[in-house]
Simulated scan of single mutants.
Amino acid sequence: MMGIFSKYLLVDDDMDDLDFFCEVMEVIDPSAACYTANNGKEALELLDSNSTIVPDIIFMDLNMPKMDGKSCLKILKSNSAYKHIPVVILTTSSNLTDKEEVITSGASYFLTKPTSMNELHEKVLWAIHGLEERAASMTGNN
């Protein structure tokens, strides 16, 4: 599947989740670039250090050391260079307060981490399609 997005960043401190996500992205779009960071601080450093890595979508966990997903989201959405990038929260939390807080802070979606690769594939694909549809409707290309 080749869509309008080609660069993805997953911010998560769980190495298995990073690997699974990149495997899923390889299936969804083999030509896509999949970047990873282990926490919000590392993600911001990665973005600030290399303008060629600026992703089309950021998938981010909430609970991480050094800088959690909520703090990173707030910084991203307050930075003119990054506020346009859709952020999808992908977390083990199913807490409604967390969901409300991150959506209010600018996250596009709040997804609970799935327990299988198939479910991860479905959720990631659903989020990508939803964001592509939003982008197309904003540009009048739907």
Results as ranks from 00 to 15, higher is better:
94 S>D: 15
9 L>H: 08
83 K>V: 04
66 K>P: 00
43 A>N: 02
88 V>C: 02
79 N>G: 02
95 N>V: 00
66 K>F: 07
37 A>W: 10
81 A>N: 13
126 W>F: 06
87 V>Y: 13
48 D>A: 14
13 D>C: 03
58 I>Y: 05
96 L>P: 01
88 V>M: 10
49 S>G: 12
7 K>F: 13
83 K>P: 01
17 D>W: 06
101 E>I: 01
114 P>N: 11
89 I>Y: 03
91 T>I: 03
102 V>P: 00
62 L>N: 00
48 D>S: 06
57 I>K: 04
49 S>H: 14
50 N>A: 10
39 N>F: 10
118 N>T: 10
38 N>T: 09
71 S>N: 08
78 S>L: 02
107 A>S: 04
20 F>N: 13
109 Y>K: 15
121 H>D: 04
56 D>C: 15
69 G>W: 08
112 T>C: 08
77 K>M: 04
27 V>N: 09
31 S>F: 08
39 N>L: 03
95 N>H: 10
84 H>C: 06
35 Y>H: 15
78 S>Y: 12
53 I>G: 00
83 K>A: 07
14 D>C: 11
111 L>Y: 09
117 M>W: 08
125 L>Y: 12
105 S>W: 08
119 E>S: 15
28 I>W: 09
64 M>G: 00
80 S>H: 11
43 A>C: 11
80 S>P: 11
58 I>N: 00
78 S>N: 07
105 S>H: 04
45 E>N: 12
110 F>T: 01
132 E>R: 14
44 L>E: 04
106 G>T: 04
75 I>G: 00
68 D>N: 08
21 F>H: 07
25 M>F: 14
12 D>E: 13
21 F>S: 03
27 V>Q: 13
112 T>K: 10
86 P>G: 10
49 S>Y: 09
54 V>S: 05
44 L>G: 01
6 S>A: 12
73 L>I: 01
82 Y>H: 13
24 V>A: 08
41 K>S: 03
95 N>L: 02
46 L>S: 14
60 M>Y: 11
40 G>E: 02
73 L>N: 00
56 D>T: 07
19 D>C: 10
14 D>N: 15
130 G>M: 06
61 D>I: 00
13 D>I: 05
61 D>V: 03
34 C>F: 10
90 L>V: 04
9 L>R: 05
95 N>G: 01
40 G>W: 06
103 I>C: 02
38 N>I: 12
23 E>R: 15
11 V>R: 01
41 K>A: 04
15 M>S: 13
37 A>R: 00
27 V>D: 12
23 E>F: 14
43 A>G: 05
75 I>W: 05
122 E>Q: 15
12 D>P: 05
130 G>I: 01
131 L>V: 08
9 L>Q: 07
80 S>W: 09
122 E>W: 11
36 T>R: 15
114 P>K: 15
115 T>V: 06
52 T>K: 13
35 Y>E: 09
19 D>W: 14
106 G>M: 04
15 M>L: 15
45 E>P: 02
26 E>R: 11
91 T>Y: 09
85 I>D: 06
41 K>P: 00
18 L>D: 05
131 L>H: 12
92 T>G: 04
105 S>I: 02
49 S>P: 01
107 A>Q: 00
29 D>E: 14
68 D>K: 01
91 T>P: 00
53 I>H: 12
108 S>N: 12
117 M>A: 14
122 E>G: 09
81 A>E: 12
128 I>L: 09
65 P>C: 02
58 I>R: 01
83 K>E: 12
42 E>Y: 06
